[in-house]
Measured scan of single mutants.
Amino acid sequence: MPVRRGHVAPQNTFLDTIIRKFEGQSRKFIIANARVENCAVIYCNDGFCELCGYSRAEVMQRPCTCDFLHGPRTQRRAAAQIAQALLGAEERKVEIAFYRKDGSCFLCLVDVVPVKNEDGAVIMFILNFEVVMEKDMVGSPAHDTNHRGPPTSWLAPGRAKTFRLKLPALLALTARESSVRSGGAGGAGAPGAVVVDVDLTPAAPSSESLALDEVTAMDNHVAGLGPAEERRALVGPGSPPRSAPGQLPSPRAHSLNPDASGSSCSLARTRSRESCASVRRASSADDIEAMRAGVLPPPPRHASTGAMHPLRSGLLNSTSDSDLVRYRTISKIPQITLNFVDLKGDPFLASPTSDREIIAPKIKERTHNVTEKVTQVLSLGADVLPEYKLQAPRIHRWTILHYSPFKAVWDWLILLLVIYTAVFTPYSAAFLLKETEEGPPATECGYACQPLAVVDLIVDIMFIVDILINFRTTYVNANEEVVSHPGRIAVHYFKGWFLIDMVAAIPFDLLI
């Protein structure tokens, strides 16, 4: 008679799926529990143990900040960024110097990925580790590398530091407007667009060049630039800015003055950032001319202004700041037409079709709590990747769950009947059967004279019903998954307890 339990259901295979997918890609990662103190490590794979030199037993239950890997060259700011990422709910990448158990130093890129439950609360953290440099290539500990984003994938490793954006290309926007319009339909740009040429040739750093990471940081200074100062900065030398009595002219307006920039070969870094931020506020060169004239017309309804409409929906549905990093990277690809469009465009503009998908598509409701890094690593669709929660398995109709209350009560009843059979069957065979043979035949009273025979008949009927119930009862397979398919249940029961239950259900007393 089957006594099969499996009270692990309803099970959740999400954690096993993450481990299996990460292991298949030869990654070095740990999984931490966000619900406990210090976000203790609950799993670390073999790749991480080989990377740091510690065994799994030495890593388990330690804080996922990996303070046991810190050393003299470990930056405090990087460690603080990892700790801050564990307090938030967004994906974050941090470069930090770690030390192995043998004392060797290596520069590592740590990717902190939160995993949320159905309520939107962070319950786990996945920390992925990628070695960037070994100890002989690690720089000085005073050099802070965590304020910069990861290198873009479309640049060669040897040319990542030679990417320079020439400031004269930004200063000569109005001069290039006529050349853009003359391109017409034969050019790649839309009317009114501004073409910015980027020099990728390796050259020595000069005062006129600005690194790509500095251009990325310009967006942080746009908020500090007032509207009046932006307007004066875009007017140009024809209309000098008016300053109040006793007030000095704005240095932001002076930063885009061609006369002032041409007199000296070098520009201050602050002026460069502010000038680029001011130019980015204009949607095209037409807006710059309109600002000089004193009238700013409404933005025209053409394809170039609607190019950012799908980007707005993608940004609203993005799951991490990696989408913004990807957008900034692609927006700086050289030799393309940049349409400086305000994100607050007309909502009635139709979304044009684009061959290049900048932001990841909208994630469906079932995966809105899973970050983009987890979705990318697992390579699963929205119909396959579940949320991290207890999910009731989908069972067929008329199927009994093996952990249901009805099955528990039924098993206790069958257990009592088995005990009765084990006690009274030998007793009936030894004593009652002998008395029946010696006594007179009682054929007239039937079952009324033999109450134990009636009980034995009921017990046999219950055993037959138990066999039928076992054909529709779920079970737990070797992978700790609840199986509810009727065919698989029948095959599993035939290979197991079916023969024993059938022999126990045969009414031998009635056959004798």
Score class of each variant (00 low, 15 high):
residue 114 P to G: 02
residue 71 G to L: 01
residue 159 R to E: 06
residue 93 K to V: 08
residue 206 S to W: 05
residue 189 G to E: 06
residue 83 A to M: 13
residue 228 A to W: 06
residue 348 F to P: 12
residue 258 P to H: 09
residue 222 V to W: 09
residue 58 E to S: 04
residue 79 A to K: 08
residue 378 L to R: 02
residue 19 I to P: 01
residue 256 L to M: 05
residue 256 L to P: 08
residue 220 N to H: 06
residue 213 D to P: 07
residue 228 A to T: 13
residue 116 K to A: 08
residue 105 C to K: 05
residue 159 R to P: 06
residue 345 G to M: 14
residue 112 V to P: 01
residue 158 G to L: 14
residue 59 V to W: 01
residue 310 P to L: 08
residue 328 R to K: 15
residue 214 E to M: 05
residue 22 F to M: 10
residue 201 T to K: 15
residue 281 R to A: 15
residue 364 K to H: 15
residue 366 R to N: 07
residue 34 A to M: 06
residue 365 E to G: 12
residue 140 S to P: 15
residue 351 S to K: 12
residue 202 P to N: 12
residue 91 E to K: 08
residue 205 P to Y: 04
residue 346 D to M: 05
residue 5 R to I: 08
residue 267 L to E: 06
residue 83 A to C: 01
residue 207 S to N: 06
residue 151 P to A: 13
residue 32 A to Q: 01
residue 294 G to I: 08
residue 54 Y to W: 07
residue 322 S to D: 14
residue 18 I to T: 06
residue 134 E to I: 04
residue 296 L to Y: 05
residue 56 R to K: 06
residue 213 D to Y: 03
residue 299 P to R: 08
residue 373 K to A: 12
residue 160 A to W: 15
residue 355 D to E: 10
residue 272 S to V: 05
residue 339 N to P: 14
residue 263 S to F: 08
residue 88 G to H: 08
residue 165 L to P: 14
residue 75 Q to R: 13
residue 251 P to V: 11
residue 294 G to L: 12
residue 307 A to N: 07
residue 5 R to V: 09
residue 126 I to G: 07
residue 8 V to G: 14
residue 17 T to R: 10
residue 194 V to Q: 01
residue 344 K to D: 13
residue 79 A to W: 01
residue 319 T to R: 05
residue 263 S to M: 04
residue 335 Q to Y: 04
residue 346 D to G: 11
residue 173 L to D: 12
residue 34 A to D: 01
residue 129 F to S: 01
residue 346 D to K: 07
residue 132 V to L: 06
residue 26 S to C: 07
residue 367 T to L: 15
residue 7 H to T: 05
residue 276 C to K: 07
residue 295 V to F: 14
residue 187 G to A: 15
residue 95 E to N: 08
residue 298 P to R: 07
residue 350 A to K: 11
residue 324 L to P: 12
residue 273 R to I: 12
residue 133 M to C: 15
residue 283 S to H: 08
residue 108 C to Q: 01
residue 117 N to W: 06
residue 81 Q to L: 09
residue 94 V to M: 01
residue 215 V to M: 06
residue 123 I to T: 13
residue 148 R to K: 12
residue 163 F to R: 15
residue 118 E to Q: 10
residue 12 N to Q: 15
residue 349 L to R: 12
residue 370 V to P: 07
residue 150 P to W: 06
residue 236 G to M: 04
residue 181 R to P: 13
residue 133 M to G: 14
residue 217 A to S: 08
residue 36 V to L: 15
residue 34 A to G: 06
residue 126 I to Q: 05
residue 76 R to Q: 15
residue 125 F to R: 06
residue 34 A to P: 15
residue 272 S to Y: 04
residue 263 S to D: 07
residue 111 D to E: 01
residue 97 A to M: 09
residue 216 T to Q: 05
residue 151 P to G: 12
residue 27 R to N: 06
residue 303 A to Q: 11
residue 79 A to E: 03
residue 82 I to R: 01
residue 252 R to K: 13
residue 113 V to E: 10
residue 317 N to K: 03
residue 279 V to L: 11
residue 121 A to P: 11
residue 309 H to W: 12
residue 296 L to D: 07
residue 60 M to W: 01
residue 285 A to I: 11
residue 189 G to I: 15
residue 48 F to V: 01
residue 207 S to R: 15
residue 287 D to H: 04
residue 141 P to H: 06
residue 319 T to S: 09
residue 95 E to K: 12
residue 107 L to F: 14
residue 27 R to C: 14
residue 16 D to C: 06
residue 118 E to Y: 06
residue 193 A to G: 05
residue 149 G to C: 06
residue 201 T to L: 06
residue 95 E to W: 01
residue 80 A to D: 08
residue 69 L to A: 01
residue 11 Q to G: 15
residue 364 K to D: 08
residue 297 P to C: 07
residue 230 E to Q: 10
residue 200 L to R: 12
residue 276 C to A: 03
residue 241 P to S: 10
residue 223 A to G: 08
residue 204 A to L: 15
residue 282 A to V: 05
residue 299 P to K: 07
residue 225 L to I: 03
residue 213 D to Q: 06
residue 238 G to P: 05
residue 280 R to A: 14
residue 216 T to M: 15
residue 311 L to P: 07
residue 167 L to S: 10
residue 318 S to M: 01
residue 198 V to E: 03
residue 345 G to D: 07
residue 87 L to A: 15
residue 79 A to M: 06
residue 41 V to E: 01
residue 86 L to G: 01
residue 323 D to R: 07
residue 46 D to P: 06
residue 22 F to H: 13
residue 332 K to A: 07
residue 382 A to T: 01
residue 77 R to Y: 12
residue 93 K to C: 13
residue 289 E to D: 07
residue 62 R to N: 05
residue 160 A to S: 10
residue 111 D to V: 07
residue 26 S to H: 15
residue 360 A to H: 15
residue 85 A to N: 01
residue 27 R to I: 05
residue 349 L to E: 11
residue 14 F to R: 11
residue 347 P to C: 15
residue 52 C to I: 15
residue 213 D to H: 15
